[in-house]
Write a protein that binds this DNA or RNA. Structure first.
Lengths: 340, 340
DNA sequence: CCGATCTGCCAATACGTATTAGCTAATACG
DNA sequence: CGTATTAGCTAATACGTATTGGCAGATCGG
């Protein structure tokens, strides 16, 4: 009935136009540089391809090569600036290398279901961040290359930030300012990176001989709203903390907001330290003191690690050093009891 | 040499296991409900597919059907919460309908180049937002279904918010509070939606007989930094405005920040109205008065419109009414000269 | 009981590309 | 000049699925 009105240019068209076979066109344009083709022929093919505006059909290529040149990235929540930044890093590196990226989060699905959808698209590999990858069912990742972010694993290679140091730096900063009544705000989670932030914080407190009673350990969802709620709770507690470490900047922003609207001076009466150093840290007033985590770099490295595995069958990933984090002292931290 | 170690289950495998032909399997599983297959046979095939854990190879399907079930979304900047929200809306609807989404921005590439990459992936259609789509080269979109967001066009169907009303509502809100020394802060852009916000604002001023001298029209990039810069400029001007409309919440957040750090009371000495109502509007203190734009709904509708075109060849998109916006009065606006 | 009609299935082919085995012609070498 | 070798190309096939034309058997009408 209807011949496709605007069928796209194929290798067959190029072949006809250049007076060679389709196979030869494929040899020239198929990306295989070691193919033996006479220089003159190669020229003719390239010229014909150019004139016709040939563009390879990546789907067809994927089908025959068994490689789709597409990667998945799965995070809990793409609206979280931290994860978004990770994905951005992945995107940059991947598209540079000719890979497409299919980002997805698990806000309205489960990791397994999402991975299933990705598998049907024949993605070559996937980057997992913030999912507690260890708890995923065995075969959700079958014959898929996997790289995990911020989560050490026997099964898969990964990249990580120095989350332990993040917690420690926050603690040392507050302790160094003279705070001893401290609080921790974070989500109840089995995500390794977040657990490590927490652990680093408590280790440093213990090392300094500072105790933290359980009423100053507040568990809330890692959102702005969670931060507000946590701070309300802390302000109402019998012995108010003078320094609070929030496991993410969103939490810290929420905590700060509650302070400002409750008339609690920051950092005069209360110091707040966040974690991540995402844009929001510099938007609120005063700007957040926080621990900078190289999210984009994490994503970029994860992508490189994954692609390297895909392109080089020999490549065996070695465990890598965690990426350093650093404390960025800004406006929400200062000595305790200082009203100015 | 190496037979694929874990080749996935194909229709052939299912066929063998069920004792039917591959064609029959395809008829049963190929999604074509009007296929004539005996109930008993259909059962056998479904059972076999289930037992083997068959999952269709979408790439192969795409190749033969000439449809990839993948959509592109192109925006200027995915780190902008507004565009991100649009993309989220697209994602939701698209994945519901079995389409994959390839989001991309043009921060480090051009629209044309990005579209070229998407074309090679054989995407079925693309949603464009904030790109000044009218200026795209003709054939960057050849044989692609296109839907534009916030941009009326002869060539392509689209969905839009009532950007004119957004500007007008902001103006009327400020005028209604008694402000007459107003300012506008926005990017220099040819993006239609942003132009309309601007136009709506100025129309309402004119209707009220309020003039706005050019020194109170400030052009800066639509970022937090841009907002800070713009506000610095306005505060330094000979006749300070008492009310400022910023074309986006990021700008407004930046403007607010400059006020807070400069000791200018908001809304006591200066009122600020943003636009978009993204999360940041409720994170800053005081919370931003802003015009809520249904970004996610825009994305969702754009996706539905695009998919509808793809699935139903008969479907002819009709121009649609712009989505309503509404003013959300929060903490950054109040009567002029009020020091409280 | 025979032709017509319909049902249910399958063989074959196509989609666009990559890859391999093999063919031809040219070159090398004795 | 004859044979071995190589360079350069092509025919054929595969990837996994969808689709169509047709075939065998069943059903129906008279």
């Amino acid at each position: 009935m209807h011949a496709n009105p605007a069928r796209s240019i194929t290798t067959h068209d190029v072949a006809r136009h250049a007076g060679v076979s389709q196979a030869t066109v494929s040899l020239v344009l198929g990306g295989n540089p070691r193919a033996r083709v006479a220089a003159a022929t190669r020229e003719r093919v390239l010229k014909a391809a150019d004139e016709l505006g040939y563009r390879p059909n990546i789907l067809a290529r994927a089908l025959v090569r068994g490689r789709s040149y597409a990667l998945g990235v799965v995070v809990p929540d793409l609206s979280s600036p931290f994860f978004l930044e990770v994905v951005t890093g992945v995107q940059r590196v991947a598209s540079e290398a000719g890979y497409a990226v299919l980002p997805g989060d698990t806000r309205d699905t489960t990791p397994s279901r999402h991975l299933e959808a990705l598998r049907q698209r024949q993605i070559d590999g996937v980057i997992l961040d913030g999912l507690g990858a260890a708890t995923l069912p065995e075969d959700a990742l079958r014959d898929l290359k996997v790289v995990v972010v911020d989560e050490p694993s026997e099964r898969w290679p990964g990249v990580a930030s120095d989350a332990l140091a993040a917690g420690r730096l926050a603690a040392e900063h507050l302790l160094g300012l003279g705070h001893t009544r401290l609080a921790f705000v974070g989500p109840a989670t089995d995500v390794h990176g977040l657990r490590m932030r927490e652990r680093g914080f408590f280790q440093a407190l213990r090392a300094a001989g500072v105790a933290l009673p359980s009423e100053r350990l507040v568990r809330v969802p890692a959102t702005v709203g969670g931060g507000q709620k946590a701070m309300k709770q802390l302000l109402a507690s019998s012995e108010r903390p003078t320094g609070v470490f929030c496991a993410s900047d969103l939490l810290a922003a929420g905590a700060l907001k509650t302070c400002l609207t409750s008339g609690v001076a920051v950092p005069g009466q209360l110091s707040i330290v966040g974690c991540d150093d995402v844009e929001i840290a510099r938007v609120v007033t005063p700007e957040l003191t926080t621990v900078a985590v190289p999210a984009r770099e994490l994503g970029a490295r994860a992508a490189r690690l994954l692609i390297r595995q895909l392109e080089d069958a020999e490549f065996v990933p070695r465990p890598t050093r965690p990426l350093p984090v650093r404390l960025v002292a800004r406006g929400t931290s200062g000595p305790p009891g200082d009203r100015g």
